[in-house]
């Protein structure tokens, strides 16, 4: 019992330290611009205001940007969940020539510095006529190496007996994948989905380069307009950061029960 209390105390202390910068940001989003920039800065707003938020909605089309971000993120989540687990399954449980070479390529893609490939990738997208389209923003990332890596790791842990039994039954490989493997991957899929969503939601450089009209802008791209070498408008940026993070927080809140379930409860054991 004592042990449990000390765990709670530790966790709470840790939590306070960890979320302090975030809490400060939340509070700062209700400060007028002059207070945010004030030196020395203060913790609590002296003069509470929602002008940063109203400014955000007045000066840019938040609804459109929000919707665009959501469309892109959801498309990428769906694509990655399906494709990464397919590819991950092949790497974990199927045998074929060049398997290791191919997996090496997955790792290579994971390690490529994004800035190096950006211009050539854009040229490709332009040649395909996909500039300023959702497809152009999404296509290079529909099957992310991190996802393949994760799914391969998880699927490797599924006992071979399960798959072997199905093969003996004569089940086709696709049926094995969809009806046996995929359902077992639920916790991993939840994690992957969340990571994919988040990465896409916060991604900046690529959508900023591919989207050429404001009605295609995602949230981070639209918010970057306020970031100016000479006069960055911190109030708008901070309020924007809060607006950007809110959906991910909600999503995590909703999805975390899948983590709690764990692998044991999915019928594996």
């Amino acid at each position: 019992m004592k042990r449990r209390v000390s765990t709670y105390v530790l966790l709470t202390a840790g939590l306070l330290v960890v979320i302090f910068p975030f809490a400060w940001t939340m509070l700062a989003s209700f400060k007028p611009e002059s207070e945010i920039r004030q030196n020395p800065p203060a913790l609590l707003p002296a003069d509470w205001t929602t002008s940063n938020y109203s400014g955000l909605f007045e000066r840019m089309n938040m609804g459109t940007a929000f919707l665009n971000s959501a469309i892109i993120a959801i498309a990428l989540v769906v694509a990655n969940l399906l494709l990464c687990s397919m590819v991950g399954y092949a790497f974990a449980k199927l045998r074929f020539r060049f398997r290791n070479t191919l997996f090496g390529l997955v790792m290579v893609q994971m390690m490529v510095p994004a800035i190096v490939v950006m211009v050539p990738q854009f040229v490709l997208i332009a040649k395909m006529g996909l500039v300023n389209t959702f497809l152009g923003i999404v296509l290079p990332f529909v099957v992310a190496p991190l996802g393949i890596f994760m799914m391969r790791q998880f699927i490797s842990d599924i006992p071979d007996e399960l798959i072997q039994a199905a093969r003996v039954d004569g089940a086709k490989e696709f049926r094995i994948f969809f009806s046996i493997v995929l359902p077992l991957c639920r916790p991993a899929l939840a994690t992957l989905g969340l990571i994919t969503f988040m990465t896409s939601w916060n991604n900046f450089l690529w959508p900023a380069v591919v989207a050429q009209s404001e009605d295609m802008y995602t949230l981070p791209v639209a918010l970057a307009i306020f970031s100016n070498a000479q006069a960055t408008q911190y109030g708008l940026l901070i309020a924007g950061a809060v607006v950007v993070v809110a959906p991910i927080l909600l999503l995590f809140l909703f999805l975390q029960r899948y983590f709690v379930q764990g692998i044991a409860s999915t019928g594996l054991k």
Binding site: F20, F22, I36, M198, N202, I238, V245
Partner: peptide
């Protein structure tokens, strides 16, 4: 998990 999902731009000021 919050720090991981928060965009760096907002948090830098903090």
């Amino acid at each position: 998990y919050t720090p991981y999902i928060t965009s760096i731009i907002g948090i830098a000021v903090a």
